[in-house]
Write a protein that binds this DNA or RNA. Sequence first.
DNA 1: CGTTTTTGATTACAGATGTAATCTTAATTT
DNA 2: AAATTAAGATTACATCTGTAATCAAAAACG
Lengths: 125, 125
Amino acid sequence: MIELSKAEFAVMEALWQGYPAKASDIVQRLSDDTQWHEKTIKTLVSRLVKKQAVSFEKDGREYIYTPTIGREAYTLKESQNFIARLFRGRVAPLVSGFAKTQQLSQQDIDELKQIIEQWEQKQGK
Amino acid sequence: MIELSKAEFAVMEALWQGYPAKASDIVQRLSDDTQWHEKTIKTLVSRLVKKQAVSFEKDGREYIYTPTIGREAYTLKESQNFIARLFRGRVAPLVSGFAKTQQLSQQDIDELKQIIEQWEQKQGK
DNA sequence: CGTTTTTGATTACAGATGTAATCTTAATTT
DNA sequence: AAATTAAGATTACATCTGTAATCAAAAACG
């Protein structure tokens, strides 16, 4: 699997916001959230290309970048790894921790209920 | 917050299994799961001491190690950071991903239900 | 008591990461 | 056309991480 560092992930987020995109677009978007120097961002983009998380097409002197992996797929994989490492693959203990420390909102609860409902429907029960 | 690398976390797991513990105990426990050289594990323990995730008492020439942070507290913090970074702080999208990809077991569902129930009880509703 | 073993301390070293600066070359400006 | 700017490529460099090896000192062994 493609592994992304935190900074690289942040750049991916900017790209996922809309693509294909020029480097200058990515820099632009990131300037809202970070203080990163343009050079820093370009370096990160290069590393992403090297890791094949991002591909590009040339447009004259500029490159037009596109993510090769979707946000959903990537975050799912990451979540699986994380949950496997910290909670032996089971998601409930994580949610439980959130519950115990008052970090669940009504919205969270509603969504969880819906997830459960759909799950049970699919189980044909 | 104390930040642990993956290898460091694995060592903490071994220590959380039972403490206070001697280095040799930790090495012993880890030998079940990993191929790490004893020297490697000692290095990791040193780094944990330096990071103050672990304290020690001298017992003659040996050290007796104790975690300074609890597993629960640590994994909760890590989870919060993770969820904040990937899902803007909301836990439901993660669970949703697991659901969509058939990674929820009946047991997970049961536990989630219970979490919800307790949450609603506490809300006095 | 001298030798070997064992413990923690110190040192090693490559690859990943954060964070740019410099270089090359082509485009734009004056 | 000469000078400046801007894009990506290359280089930089400290810190973190994984993975030990070596060192110093004390303990155990013979």
